[in-house]
Amino acid sequence: MLREFICIMCPQGCALQAEEENGKVLEVSGNTCPRGKEYAIQEITAPMRNIATSVKVENGELPLASVRLTGPIPKSKIFRAMDEIRKIYVKAPVKTGDIVIENLLGTGESVIITKTIHKI
């Protein structure tokens, strides 16, 4: 079966075609770099995404600090990941790179702060 989708690895957004049989990828075309091929295979076998959101901050110059994951997690775990991150409350100051959850839902990826928030 021919599957078609847009690569999200970079803003170029290549239109990928992948020939798939029983969950196995036989051939990928339309990609302009090796990451496109990797993405196509991953998208068919086990789609992964990164997410960005915020955590609440106590005593900060802003009420929120933005966070992201250190790497993509299975797409099916996105909403559960959001639930976990929503429970977090940090105390200012926090700085870019601080880890707020390690090994999120057993994915091996961590939740890290992406914005330095000073104490008020």
């Binding site: 970079c10 803003p11 990164n50 960005a52 959101t53 915020s54 933005s66 966070v67 992201r68 870019t96 992406t114 914005k115 330095t116």
Partner: peptide, 21 residues
């Protein structure tokens, strides 16, 4: 706060606040 910034500049995908920082 979403990621995708810096792929050309830093060869990694950063959030907006990280790129600015």
């Amino acid at each position: 706060i979403h990621d995708g910034f810096g792929l050309t500049r830093f060869k990694e995908t950063l959030s907006g606040p990280e790129y600015a920082q």
